[in-house]
Design a binder for these strands. Structure first.
Length: 674
DNA sequence: ATAGGGTTAG
């Protein structure tokens, strides 16, 4: 739209200038207009001047000196002119703090006193940039002018302090004056939520109720957001009922807040129902339900909604893309993930920031660590999330050395690691068998970075010792931990006992594990395997029996495989898939070719074998099979997959709960180290 | 001419 047919020609009479103002494109053009304005006092109206001044201030290289000289040339600029300029600037998202301070000072020099409009505009402007210091200075001015009691000024001050996380200042302003309106209450509530004090936010709401004030939709959004943070479904339902009872207008904000509340409280069905019943939806509504489904592990449904949204012609924004990419990452849906990436490129969306981070994560979780590295390399702004995703990704792919190199690069780049980064670093060391290096990093966590090791970090180190066969060291570490060992710790040690055939220690640890989680199968299965491997079959069978007798909960094994963009799901022993017959025939063929006695092979219908069989039947022979499993792959299946990779000359990439296995030619990238 | 609201990762 460089040329518009209705654009005025240079001969346009000066009186039509105000209309030209909206189409100013260059400084030259502006100077022309300005010359005309200065000659004609009748054109010097607040909106005209505000447009000219805002153009100067908002242009990519601000012409502040120019703007100020223009103001100097006008006889007696009015307060309204300045206010109009501040109003206009306050609508911009750019940081205009110093520019507006200059205008403000010019204004004071002309002996104009700010009024109850000046302060709100300026405070909003400062809030946009979280300019706390400037805001405090203005607060002092407002007090001096006796305007701090004005409810608009005060609410804007509260809002600025809310954005800056200064909860105490908000409360002080709130308490300091008798005149409070609904906006004051709402600002206080959302201030507490923003500061992470959701409980307090709800308390304020209750206090407001007890003063018999009626909330409106905005207040409800604020308190719903606090409720979502708390995950308090009971409270959320009450708030929902309150909205109905008080006939508060269910606009799209309230609807979105309810959808978000229900999904964050774990009631994704209600969230979905509400979403469907919303009369008006916008992109945030879609984002809320998609991210809600993702957080409730309904990834397929999340992707279905993403597709539905496309069909309805709603344009996704970065929030949407992150939600879709997260689903792809969890499901291992590489093809769809690539489609999202192509969409990002096609639409000129930057693969940076949170979108870039989500892409890195998607590619590495879908087994394409090479692509993850490409995206990572192309990112201009790498933050702690970016590095952490990449480090965790490399660790999952067994590329421990590379993960550690990247960790060093991260330090050189001046990006500070956090607790999650160290989970990545330590698991990299663990998977790569780098015990000493891992221990050094573990110690540096607190000594160098001032981070307190959490139980996950101890878990990584226990795992590290366990894999290396240093069961004594693992035990020492557990007894030195400042917290109670949890199921992960004992499970990890028991797994190590199993791998190293330490029956005696295993028995002790299994008891401890059962103390922590009596209803889970982990301890029974590991002990049964340990007994069986140690030629104590009868003890092994005893464990199996005990497991049945105690009604132990089993997490059903589930594997996913994507073929031509469709995710197929297989559960252990299940025959629901339309091609189940062929799949089971294929699985039996593996066993037959491997000379395994099917009746002895407990793992023969494990989900990863079903998914692999289906992949062999249904995909092109030159493509790798990519399987995602929800549990750790068992030893038997690991051997079978190695064998199949050679027999069928197929690359098979399996992501299990803990890491990637890349099978090729009868070998696995994990080198039996998992 | 003025204030308060919903969605984002490892």
């Amino acid at each position: 739209m460089a040329f518009s047919p209705s654009a005025p020609s240079p001969s346009t009479p000066p009186l039509q200038l105000p209309h030209r103002l909206d189409t100013i494109r260059s400084m030259d053009e502006l100077k022309q207009i300005q010359a005309a304005v200065l000659k004609t006092p009748s054109l010097q109206s607040p909106p005209v001047l505000a447009k000219i001044l805002s153009f100067c201030a908002l242009s990519s290289s601000p012409h502040i000196a120019h703007a100020r000289s223009l103001l100097a040339h006008i006889d007696n600029p009015s307060l309204l002119m300045y206010n109009t300029v501040f109003h206009s600037l306050s609508r911009s998202n750019r940081s205009l703090v110093s520019i507006s301070i200059m205008f403000y000072e010019d204004m004071l020099e002309k002996d104009l006193r700010p009024d109850s409009f000046t302060f709100p505009y300026l405070l909003k402007l400062f809030a946009n940039s979280q300019a706390l210091q400037a805001g405090e200075a203005l607060h002092a001015h407002a007090i001096k002018m006796g305007l701090d009691a004005n409810v608009y000024v005060r609410n804007n001050l509260m809002s600025l302090y809310a954005v800056c996380g200064e909860v105490r200042s908000i409360q002080k302003l709130f308490d300091g004056f008798p005149e409070k309106d609904l906006v004051s209450w709402t600002t206080l509530i959302s201030g507490y939520t923003k500061a992470g004090l959701a409980k307090k936010a709800v308390k304020v709401f209750e206090e407001m109720m007890s003063e018999n004030l009626r909330a409106d939709g905005v207040t409800m959004v604020a308190v719903l957001s606090a409720c979502a943070e708390l995950g308090d479904l009971e409270l959320g339902r009450n708030l929902h009922r309150y909205i109905g009872a008080r006939q508060i207008d269910m606009d799209v904000f309230v609807g979105n807040a309810l959808v978000d509340m229900y999904s964050k409280c774990g009631d994704v069905d209600s969230a979905y129902q509400l979403f469907n019943e919303m009369p008006v939806r916008n992109v945030v509504s879609w984002n809320s339900i998609i991210s809600g489904l993702v957080n409730n592990k309904e990834f397929k449904q999340a992707l279905e909604l993403f597709r539905q949204m496309q069909r309805q012609g709603i344009e996704p924004d970065p929030f949407t893309l992150v939600g879709a990419l997260n689903s792809c990452a969890s499901l291992g849906a590489l093809e769809l993930g690539q489609w999202v990436h192509a969409y990002i490129n096609r639409n000129g969306i930057e693969a940076d920031g949170i979108t870039g981070n989500a892409l890195v994560d998607m590619y590495s979780k879908c087994g394409r660590i090479d692509r993850a590295k490409e995206v990572f390399g192309g990112m201009a702004h790498k933050d702690v999330y970016t590095y952490t995703s990449m480090i965790v990704g490399l660790a999952m792919h067994g590329r421990g050395e590379e993960a550690l190199e990247l960790f060093a690069a991260m330090s050189s780049a001046g990006v500070k690691p956090n607790e999650v980064t160290f989970v990545g670093v330590l698991s990299a060391c663990s998977h790569a068998g780098l015990v000493d290096v891992g221990l050094r990093h573990f110690e540096s966590m607190s000594a160098v970075y001032g981070l307190v090791p959490q139980i996950e970090h101890y878990g990584c180190v226990v795992d590290m010792f366990g894999r290396a066969g240093r069961l004594d060291k693992a035990q020492d570490l557990i007894s030195s931990m400042p917290m109670e060992p949890d199921a992960f710790i004992w499970g990890s040690l028991l797994g190590a006992c199993r791998n190293h055939g330490d029956v005696a220690l295993g028995e002790t640890v299994a008891k401890l594990l059962l103390d922590v989680e009596p209803q889970e199968e982990g301890a029974y299965v590991l002990m049964s395997n340990l007994y069986t491997a140690g030629n104590r079959r009868s003890d092994g069978l005893r464990m199996r029996k005990a497991m049945r007798a105690n009604k132990v909960r089993k997490t059903p094994g589930c594997s996913l495989i994507e073929i031509d963009g469709v995710i197929h799901e297989f559960r252990k022993g299940e025959e629901l898939h339309p091609q189940a017959k062929e799949v089971y025939a294929m699985v039996d063929e593996f066993a037959h070719r491997l000379n395994i006695d099917s009746s002895q092979d407990e793992a023969r219908h494990h989900s990863e074998r079903l998914a692999m069989a289906f992949g062999l039947i249904g995909s092109r022979p030159d493509t790798p099979l990519r399987i995602v499993k929800n549990l750790r792959v068992c030893h038997d299946c690991h051997s079978v997959i190695k064998y199949v990779s050679r027999l069928y000359n197929r690359e098979i990439v399996l992501r299990d709960r803990y890491r990637f296995h890349r099978f090729k030619n009868g070998w696995c990238s994990c080198n039996e180290f998992w």
